[in-house]
Design a protein around this nucleic acid. Structure first.
Ligand SMILES: [Mn+2]
Ligand SMILES: [Mn+2]
Ligand SMILES: [Zn+2]
Ligand SMILES: [Zn+2]
Lengths: 145, 145
DNA sequence: TTCCTTATTGAAAATTCTTTTCAATTAGAA
DNA sequence: TTCTAATTGAAAAGAATTTTCAATAAGGAA
């Protein structure tokens, strides 16, 4: 990831909290709430404050390095954004979140809506929900864990 | 709206708070937060508690009568859902929210993602953002209000 | 390297948001 | 009209988020 370049290029310092939060998000496979990030980093021995988690997530969102996932069953969680146009799919059972590259699949929808509503469309939010490979099949007890 | 039928058919009472909240949402053209609903109803002379707003919105969401809009600039807000498969478009300037009917526009995207990720897709969240007809053109002062 | 400036942090407090509890009320069936 | 269980409102509890401000430390300048 080129987050170091992006931060310093915009005049932001490469502080320990920022490094730690980004590196945690890099290995996470689910969207993490501020609380969860705080907890996990504390378990890893770090003593950073919850306030800094909020502040850092705010900054990273502004810089486009992270994005919020709105899993209706959960509090909003943060995931890393890679370069380019992507969306996310989230498992309704284990909440694993996966990024997938966007195509022009919704272009015709956007065009139609612009005509129908006279809105000018400038952005969109698209998330898919379902079951990940691990959760598609009931486990040995026949129960979604 | 057939909300009366839906409520009583499921054994829920048609209480004043429920009526008031639904009727407010029926005339609102922006998504309303619980606080906003509470404020507006108080201005209309009603003395219902904020707690009941939360409870009612929870119930109405469960019944599929309302849905949450996630406008990134705002707190989540509630809007009424009409029958059938719809999505919403939200003005980034005045936050006016409009429902539009879904087509099969994202079916091919879903298929592709299922193949690429091995997830089974069961639901999705799609919201468009942009400028409504009123906000598309700068006003007389040339400024987005 | 060392020094300095200023962005950044952490702790505490304040604020805002949401849920829980429980006694009083009331919708709607009998 | 009466009765009963669902629903409400008020208060309190519990979470989540933001603000404040003194202490710290990143990174450029010397
Ligand atoms: Mn897209
Ligand atoms: Mn759809
Ligand atoms: Zn899963
Ligand atoms: Zn507008």
């Amino acid at each position: 990831m080129n987050y170091k370049a992006i931060l310093s290029q915009k005049g932001y310092r490469l502080s320990a909290p920022r490094k730690q939060i980004i590196e945690l998000l890099e290995v996470a496979d689910v969207a993490l709430s501020p609380q969860q990030i705080h907890n996990q980093l504390q378990q890893n021995g770090s003593a950073l404050g919850l306030v800094s988690v909020y502040r850092t997530l705010g900054l990273l969102t502004e810089l486009g390095l992270v994005t919020i996932l709105y899993d209706p069953q959960l509090n909003p969680g943060y995931v890393l954004r890679t370069q380019g146009h992507h969306h996310h799919i989230v498992c309704q059972n284990c909440h694993k979140a996966l990024e997938f590259p966007a195509t022009n699949d919704i272009d015709s929808l956007v065009e139609r809506v612009e005509k129908q509503t006279s809105f000018q469309v400038r952005d969109h939010l698209l998330q898919l929900f379902g079951l990940c490979p691990d959760c598609k099949q009931p486990d040995s007890k026949g129960v979604l864990s």
